[in-house]
C-alpha cells in the first residue's frame, strides 16, 4: 500500500509520467526545442511589459487596489478557453501533424494546501515561477537566490511528499 500511495500521480505537469500519455512517435533533433526558446522570449517580454512580475503590482492585487492584474489574468484565461474550445471543436493538429491531446487533472488535497502555501510565497516575493525567471533576466540579480530557494522548496516537497496529505 505504501508504494501505491507514493506512486499516485498528483502532479500532471510532467506529462511523460501521465498514464494516459501517448509518447509522440516523432523523433526530433534537439534544435527543434529552439521554438520553445523563442516562445519563452516572447513570453518574457510580455511579462515585463505587462508589469505582472512587479512586486508592487502583486501587492496592489492582493489589496484590491488595482484592476490591472485581474484584467491580465482574466483576459488570459478567456483567450485560453476560446483557443482550447476551437482546438477541440475542429480537432486541430500540431505543426508536425499530430493530434492535440489535452488531459484531465484530478483533484487532491495538495491543490488546497499547496495552493495556500504558494499564495503566501506569491505575496511575499511578488513573483510566481515565471516571473522569478523574468526578474533575473530584467537585472534583479538577487532573485537568483529566491529561485534557488524555490528549487530547494520543490526538492523538499519531493523528499517529504509521501508524508504529506494528498
Amino acid at each position: 500500500m505504501e508504494t501505491q500511495i507514493l506512486d499516485t500521480n498528483t502532479d500532471f505537469e510532467v506529462v511523460s509520467l501521465d498514464s494516459v500519455w501517448n509518447e509522440s512517435r516523432l523523433k526530433h533533433p534537439w534544435w527543434y526545442n529552439i521554438k520553445y526558446l523563442v516562445a519563452g522570449i516572447f513570453f518574457g517580454i510580455i511579462l515585463i511589459k505587462a508589469e505582472v512580475v512587479s512586486w508592487f503590482r502583486i501587492q496592489e492585487m492582493f489589496r484590491l487596489q488595482s484592476f490591472h492584474m485581474y484584467g491580465v489574468i482574466g483576459s488570459a484565461i478567456v483567450t485560453g478557453i476560446i483557443s482550447i474550445w476551437i482546438i477541440k471543436k475542429f480537432g486541430l493538429k500540431t505543426i508536425h501533424g499530430e493530434k492535440i491531446e489535452l488531459h484531465p487533472k484530478s483533484f487532491n488535497k495538495g491543490q488546497v494546501y499547496g495552493g495556500l502555501l504558494f499564495g503566501f510565497g506569491w505575496a511575499l516575493t511578488g513573483a510566481c515561477p515565471g516571473p522569478l525567471f523574468a526578474l533575473i533576466g530584467s537585472g534583479a540579480t538577487v532573485i537568483i537566490v529566491t529561485l534557488i530557494s524555490a528549487v530547494a522548496g520543490t526538492w523538499v516537497y519531493g523528499y517529504i511528499r509521501h508524508k504529506l496529505p494528498h
Partner: peptide, 28 residues
C-alpha cells in the same frame, strides 16, 4: 526573498502547478 521563494517552490509543486499551469492552462 528566501522563505518566500521556498514557499513558491514547495507550494506550487504540492499544488501540482502555478499561475500558468493551473490558473491559465488548467482553467482554460
Amino acid at each position: 526573498m528566501v522563505v518566500g521563494g521556498f514557499l513558491v517552490g514547495f507550494g506550487t509543486r504540492y499544488a501540482g502547478g502555478c499561475t500558468s499551469g493551473h490558473s491559465i492552462m488548467g482553467i482554460s
